Amino acid sequence: MSTPHVVVVMGVAGTGKTTIGPLLASRLGVPYAEGDDFHPPANIAKMSAGVPLEDEDRWPWLDAIGAWAHERAGLGGVVSSSALKRAYRDRLRAAAPGIVFVHLTGDRSLIEDRMAHRQGHFMPTALLDSQFATLQPLEPDEPGVAVDVSGSPEEITDRAVDALRDRERSSAAQ
Rank of each mutant, 00 (worst) to 15 (best):
88 Y>G: 10
120 G>K: 08
15 T>H: 06
140 P>I: 13
6 V>T: 14
34 E>P: 07
162 D>Q: 11
28 L>D: 10
24 L>S: 05
117 H>K: 15
105 T>A: 09
68 W>S: 00
121 H>E: 00
111 I>W: 13
131 Q>C: 14
148 D>G: 09
159 R>Q: 13
29 G>S: 07
112 E>W: 03
49 A>C: 01
45 A>I: 01
98 G>R: 00
48 S>E: 02
47 M>G: 05
172 A>M: 07
88 Y>W: 10
137 P>R: 07
173 A>C: 01
139 E>A: 15
105 T>E: 13
151 G>D: 10
38 F>G: 09
122 F>K: 12
149 V>R: 03
46 K>H: 03
77 G>Q: 03
19 T>K: 03
61 W>N: 06
107 D>Y: 11
105 T>M: 07
46 K>P: 12
92 L>A: 01
94 A>E: 10
135 L>W: 13
139 E>Q: 14
144 G>R: 11
70 H>Y: 08
98 G>W: 05
119 Q>E: 13
41 P>N: 03
110 L>W: 02
11 G>I: 15
116 A>Y: 06
150 S>P: 00
37 D>G: 10
78 V>M: 05
137 P>V: 04
159 R>Y: 12
83 A>I: 14
118 R>G: 02
103 H>G: 04
34 E>M: 09
95 A>K: 15
57 D>V: 02
114 R>P: 03
115 M>G: 11
109 S>G: 00
69 A>K: 13
151 G>K: 04
90 D>Q: 15
21 G>A: 11
112 E>N: 05
171 S>F: 08
103 H>L: 12
152 S>Y: 07
23 L>T: 13
138 L>K: 03
76 G>T: 12
74 G>Y: 05
4 P>K: 11
154 E>D: 03
85 K>W: 01
126 A>T: 15
146 A>R: 12
30 V>E: 07
168 E>Q: 04
37 D>L: 09
3 T>L: 04
31 P>G: 08
92 L>Y: 09
